Amino acid sequence: MDAKRETFETRLKSSAAEIEALLDLLLSPTELSDEIARPDLLRSAMHYAVLNGGKRLRPFLVVESAALLGGNRQAALRVGAALECIHCYSLVHDDLPAMDDDDLRRGKPTVHIKFDEATAILAGDSLLTYAFDIIAAPETDLPDRSKTELVLAIARAAGLGGMAGGQALDLAAETQAPNEAGIIRLQAMKTGALIRFACEAGAIIAGASTEDRQRLRRFGEKIGLAFQLADDILDLTSDIKTMGKATGKDAARGKGTLVGLHGMEWADKQLRRHVEDAEELLVPYGERAALLITAAHFIAERKS
């Protein structure tokens, strides 16, 4: 393992530990001001949903994008935790019988299996809502304007025109496979939008220029494309033990993927191209961007 990759993996684990400690604190039994009570079953399901493993890649991207531009690290950790709440809510709901109907997530029973369907729905609802609470709270040490921009950006990334809309398109793809443009749109919404936000959020936290914000946003879009393409490859080449969830489900349901349309050789070339494009965007930052560039390679080369 080269030094840059080793540094990256060390920082990724360190960041994940910080995020998990913060999420554990945020989901403690102690009520916040203006909360009446925290029902234990619901809180336990939320805690299970967000603290059952995972690389914490999206929060890492928030923290490191903010660091690149001199942003407040503690604020970035809180925004990263908020983003992880939204990501985990989406997994809880995607796993439900009415959606993807999965029994395993990260090698463990999904929330509706561990608890029950109603609790899983409420846990997802509560995690989504809590994300906005975390960003807006006084403990997130940012100017009100920055908080407003973050709330708007994450809402657009997570909602009708982003992740939730992408899931709707994904469900529709089971009955009518989309063409190439449709697949790209679906993936940009369902998977790419939150990764794009993770990188753009760092610039917002740092109060960076419009140019920096757009550059980090485009970087997020590129690595989001790489993430989904790598996921599609893994869905065909990996197994349930490695992935911690069912594989081969897209093909079994007749869903179109770019890998299915163009083949594995094309996918490998396209994956490299996305990483090269991502690297090119960070050239102006020089060596300061080394960690984010290594993250782009990690996303393309990951095995789970």
Rank of each mutant, 00 (worst) to 15 (best):
M1Y: 06
A3D: 04
T7H: 06
E9W: 08
T10F: 14
R11W: 04
S14A: 15
L23K: 07
D24N: 09
P29S: 02
L32V: 01
D34S: 12
D40H: 12
R43E: 07
S44C: 11
M46S: 00
M46D: 01
A75V: 11
A75I: 11
A76M: 07
A82C: 11
E84H: 04
C85N: 02
L96Y: 15
D101H: 02
D103H: 02
G107Q: 03
K108D: 08
P109A: 06
T110I: 15
V111P: 00
H112V: 07
K114W: 01
E117S: 03
T119A: 01
G124M: 10
S126N: 06
T129M: 14
I135F: 13
A137C: 12
E139Q: 09
T140W: 15
T148Y: 14
R156P: 07
G159D: 10
G162I: 01
A164V: 15
Q167F: 06
A168I: 14
L169D: 00
A177F: 04
N179V: 05
L186R: 12
L186E: 09
K190T: 01
A193D: 10
L194A: 09
I195F: 08
R218C: 11
G220R: 01
E221A: 08
I223R: 04
G224L: 08
L229D: 08
D231N: 00
M243V: 08
K249A: 10
A252V: 02
T257V: 14
L261W: 04
H262F: 09
W266V: 09
H274D: 05
H274E: 11
E280N: 01
V283E: 14
P284F: 07
P284K: 10
A289K: 05
I293E: 12
T294K: 07
A295L: 07
H297N: 13
